[in-house]
């Protein structure tokens, strides 16, 4: 509750190019990734950005393909903002915030064609793999959005197929065969506008003071998803500025995280 009180303070401090925790405006917090942390999942990862923590996992299931794409597998992304992770989260089905995050993560993966869905076909018109990506927040200290996208990316990266027998999944028995992924995993970056300044990776204090946000999911060659959020508008100049930064930042992060 106290956070929004600091909005004016945060604004005037950002104008001088400084942040509460000593970072530069476009500096991200320390990111820690632990891969394969749930042995029952086909793929999993825990991502910590500062004190923000999420856990993502991949499960695979067999299903009948959609009639309009009989030879392609499918994907589902779910985000649970667990009441465990913040005093402000209520139990119950995903709210619009959780659904928005899930859909942004989904679009980044889908539109960058990260997963080769054709290779997820087992029997044309009869049986295809469905990739379930579920992400749970464990502690919210801002920027759950980018943390969720990273958790999904890493969980996909280390996911393997389970065994099949008589067209049924042999649950608990995993192969060593990895999911068919493209090399270029999309990076999601969420920029926040507070007053006149643009920042990356807000802590909760800053997120609560945000006037507008813009999430970009991009690979080195293309931009695959955008989502503008927040109450205030952006100018085209601001968007240009964000796009320029995003490319460099994404490269930097990819290198740092070996993604």
């Amino acid at each position: 509750m106290a956070e929004s009180f600091n909005k004016k303070k945060i604004e005037s401090f950002l104008e001088r190019g400084k942040r509460f925790d000593g970072r530069n405006l476009l500096e991200t917090r320390k990111i820690e990734v632990q891969e394969n942390i749930v042995n029952k999942a086909e793929g999993s990862a825990k991502v910590k950005i500062g004190k923000t923590e999420v856990i993502g996992g991949v499960k695979l299931g067999l299903m009948e393909p959609y009639t309009d794409s009989p030879d392609a597998g499918t994907m589902m992304v779910g985000v649970e903002l667990s009441p465990l992770s913040s005093p402000d989260f209520e139990p119950g089905p995903p709210n619009e915030r959780a659904i928005e995050i899930a859909r942004i993560v989904d679009r980044g993966i889908r539109e960058s064609e990260l997963i080769n869905f054709k290779e997820l076909c087992v029997k044309k018109g009869e049986l295809v793999w469905c990739v379930f990506i579920d992400i749970y927040s464990l502690n919210d200290d801002g920027n759950l959005l980018d943390a969720s996208a990273l958790a999904a990316a890493f969980a996909l990266k280390n996911a393997v197929f389970p065994k099949i027998k008589d067209d049924k999944v042999q649950y608990g028995e995993l192969t060593t065969k990895k999911l068919p992924l493209k090399k270029d995993i999309p990076i999601s970056l969420t920029f926040h506008k507070i007053g006149k300044e643009i920042i990356l990776d807000p802590i909760l204090d800053e997120e609560d003071s945000s006037d507008a946000r813009l999430t970009i999911a991009l690979t080195p060659s293309n931009i695959h998803a955008l989502q503008k959020g927040g109450e205030e508008p952006f100018t085209l100049e601001e968007i240009d500025h964000i796009l320029e930064i995003a490319e460099d930042k994404a490269k930097e992060l990819k290198k740092e995280l070996k993604l």
């Binding site: 749930v38 999942a41 996992g57 499960k59 299931g61 379930f132 579920d134 749970y136 649950y171 608990g172």
Partner: peptide, 9 residues
């Protein structure tokens, strides 16, 4: 439970 904490989602 996490959806992926068990063998079958």
């Amino acid at each position: 439970m996490l959806s992926f904490s068990v063998t079958e989602r």
